[in-house]
């Protein structure tokens, strides 16, 4: 068996092992890369790679049909590049820098772009008067708050999200965001709410928090955006699946 064929077998085995690990023991890492509804793809790819590996193990190519070995080495090594970059990917996170690039900003502030909030069509303007809290929802998804704000108006909600403190905002306001993915992390878009909190400036950016408070909508950049008013912010560990799906 020639060296190049052995290298091909190693590449196939490495990818089969990587994909197999992702769908079994590495689901937390897979959750940071791919929407759960597409995990079957990784499982299917594992099966295909194992089949390719099996036929390559049984295959015997005459030397003349393998071509110039030195010309093929870079092409084969390129197939291993993603596995190298998986090392930093494991400990990396999308943070405030990503938010600044992926969130559409105007001079007046951010526009919530990941969901087409019907709040844009609302005729509510300005800060609504504080409403009495009615009923608590445990860890209300930010997508629901953005898409159906009218259902939560005045209710007490609990959110889990990452912080972003922007100096352009009033001193008692910070943003709390999570990323919504449609297929994979490359298409992740931020969804956020504003948090009205007296000590907003003491909050550090890129921290996971849990906050509970009355939900309302405020005007930002001439559109209505979701917000909560709270007296208490609790720092927490990153959730096992940080994205919204």
């Amino acid at each position: 068996m020639r060296v190049l064929q052995i290298v091909k077998i190693i590449i196939l085995a490495a990818w089969a092992a990587f994909f197999g690990w992702l769908v079994t023991f590495g689901q937390q890492q897979l959750g940071r890369l791919l929407h759960p509804s597409l995990w079957w793809l990784v499982g299917a790819a594992t099966v295909v790679l194992i089949l390719f590996l099996a036929v390559n193990l049984c295959r015997q190519l005459p030397a003349a049909q393998q071509g110039d070995g030195w010309l093929k080495w870079p092409a084969l090594l390129i197939l291993l590049v993603p596995l190298l970059y998986f090392i930093p990917a494991q400990s990396s996170r999308f943070g405030a820098e990503t938010l600044a690039k992926r969130g559409i900003q105007t001079t007046a502030g951010f526009i919530p772009q990941a969901v087409n909030s019907e709040a844009e069509e609302s005729d509510d303007k300005g800060y609504p008067p504080p409403l009495p809290a009615r009923k608590a929802n445990t860890d209300t998804p930010l997508t629901r708050l953005s898409m159906e704000p009218q259902n939560y108006e005045g209710k007490e909600v609990e959110i889990v999200c990452q912080t972003f403190v922007d100096e352009r905002l009033p001193a008692d306001l910070f943003m709390c965001y999570r990323y919504l993915i449609s297929c994979c992390a490359a298409d992740a878009l931020p969804v956020f709410v504003f948090v009205k909190y007296p000590e907003a400036r003491s909050i550090k950016s890129d921290q996971w928090i849990r906050a509970k408070g009355a939900f309302s909508r405020i005007e930002n950049a001439q559109i209505m955006v979701p917000s909560i008013q709270t007296e208490k912010v609790e720092y927490i560990d990153e959730p096992p699946f940080p994205y919204l799906f």
Partner: peptide
């Protein structure tokens, strides 16, 4: 790295 791996895994 996250973007690259995400595109590749998909």
């Amino acid at each position: 790295s996250i973007n690259f791996l995400a595109i590749i895994v998909e």
